[in-house]
Write a protein that binds this DNA or RNA. Structure first.
Length: 164
DNA sequence: CGTTTTTGACCCGCGC
DNA sequence: GCGCGGGTCAAAAACG
């Protein structure tokens, strides 16, 4: 299903223009679904309780790293102007085989949107960190080819300690 | 009571 | 210029 020539990732030289499009296709990430672990600096969270669900998270791909913090005040303007927020440079994709889409990672997430994927009865859930100051986003979607698989994508770095 | 969830509407970028 | 697609926010409701 993905034997087609994968488009070479632009690698995002230094442009922070990838506001809403991944350099690769999700399929590319799925490539290392349950095989490799390219941990770079990521914090392995789920290492505590994965007995029920089938584990096998995929891995993490960290690009750039670092420092990121998005500038801008914590308070958002009321639509007066477009705040140019610098997206954090951290994207992670996970493919997990579990009936539960919301895998516990030790953080509290607040759902802020649900969207139906076109051509697929699989809804896409958007989560955001509930902690004030932390702008980590989480996207959960089911594999359209294998509904039993769940694809979790993380964006950003947590700047707060985990609860448990 | 606080927080979260839920659904719809709205916005933005891009394509044609 | 308008439409499409995706993403986000917002208000109200549901829940602990």
């Amino acid at each position: 299903m993905n034997d087609k020539n994968p488009k070479p990732p632009p690698d995002t030289p230094d442009s922070d223009d990838f506001t809403d499009q991944w350099p690769f296709q999700l399929s590319d990430y799925l490539k290392f679904d349950d095989n490799q672990w390219m941990n770079d600096d990521f914090e392995p969270f789920a290492s505590q309780n994965v007995s029920n669900q089938v584990h096998q998270a995929s891995n993490v791909g960290q690009f750039g790293g670092g420092s990121s913090h998005f500038e801008g005040s914590s308070s958002r303007d009321t639509g007066s102007e477009h705040e140019r927020r610098q997206v954090v440079r951290a994207r992670v994709a996970f493919k997990t085989m579990s009936e539960i889409e919301v895998l516990e990672d030790g953080y509290r997430w607040r759902k802020y949107g649900k969207k139906m994927v076109k051509n697929s009865p699989n809804p896409r859930n958007y989560y955001r960190c509930s902690v004030d100051g932390c702008n980590v986003k989480k996207r959960i979607e089911r594999d359209r080819d294998d509904p039993r698989y769940v694809i979790t994508s993380y964006e950003g770095n947590h700047t707060h300690p985990s609860s448990s």
